[in-house]
Computed example of a mutant assay.
Amino acid sequence: MPGSPRRVVIIGYPDAELLDIACPADVLHAANRLGARPGYEICLATVDGRDVEASCGLTLRAQSRLDQVTGELDTLIVSGGFGHEDAAGDARILGHLRRLSRHSRRIASVCTGSTVLAAAGLLNGRRATTHWGYANRLAERFPQVTVDPVPLYVRHGNVYTSAGVTSGLDLTLSFVEEDNGPSLARETARALVTYLQRPGNQAQVSMFLSGPPPEHRQVRDLTAYIGEHLAEDLGTVALAQRAGISARQLARLFDAHLGTSPSRYVRTVRTEQAARLLSCTELPLTAIARRCGFGSTETLRQAFLDHFDTPPSAYRRVHLRQSPA
């Protein structure tokens, strides 16, 4: 392959989740087969170079000790799993993680690997996510981290955190797109028979699985912006100004590529995001209304009645999920 390969190191440890390691590795391997240039050179590293037994009982062969990993890295990934607490308490892992982070273009965690990143101080002052069932625990233990339990993955600077297990696949597909463009990312997703592809702002716990991002660049950029800025002015005029087009042209684009108007799209996204917050957090309705861009709880209530034919309080009673012990 022309050019130096992109060096990717995945940090494993005993009782890691197999999929937290396999999803990133297989996505990058598939991208290599489909023509990633330069390709990805993938290495599983452990603190002592020993093989690790994953939580499912299968043993993974380590390819390097962490102290043998030197030089510049493209991507450093910390796996999650039931062993994440022990890993977060291992001074050797944390020391190597801090060292390697200084030489990595991109740093990421899958699932509860965020606990290890946080313990190393790499999430201080950053927004991050993790498996929805561990979000409250992460926020309580590391108050300097802004934990968002909703998205599939979050990017803050060059640090990426992802939600539970298979969200590592979505995160790694976003790396492929970032490095090689959307066409290769779509081909990789097709090869893996997975979503093409779930955006990072899609909720972890969701009944509203969306299709692939719009092909049209301006529409795709605006839908991503809307999902990340729900509390801001998302009126048709404001969105058109952001895209540098007229409000009439914006309406035509949304109708052609999304089958709806900008205002209806925004209201739907706000309502579904509110539903997700009701499902996996205990935030009060006033906070959810504010965070999702509704002017009041009454506006939120009316949107819920229109969209789900039920008020938000009743929806929460049915759908709120408790974190595991």
Rank of each mutant, 00 (worst) to 15 (best):
E178R: 14
A25R: 11
R155V: 08
R141T: 04
L76V: 00
H216C: 11
R290C: 14
V269W: 12
G80D: 00
R186E: 13
A191W: 02
D74S: 08
T268Y: 14
A91P: 12
L192P: 10
V52I: 10
P5V: 01
L18A: 09
G35I: 08
D221P: 10
R7K: 12
V147A: 07
G211F: 09
A240S: 06
V110Q: 01
A189I: 00
G71R: 04
R141C: 01
A87W: 02
P262A: 08
E41M: 03
P24Q: 05
P212S: 03
D48Y: 05
H257Y: 14
L97K: 08
S101E: 01
G39V: 04
S174K: 01
R37D: 14
E17I: 10
G227F: 04
S104R: 09
E272W: 14
R264M: 15
A303G: 09
L285V: 11
E17W: 09
A191T: 09
Y225V: 12
I42F: 10
A36E: 04
T236R: 13
P24G: 07
S101W: 09
R248S: 15
T46Y: 06
Y134E: 15
T130M: 05
V52D: 01
P24D: 05
A314S: 13
V266N: 06
R141G: 03
F175I: 10
I226N: 03
R137F: 12
V52E: 07
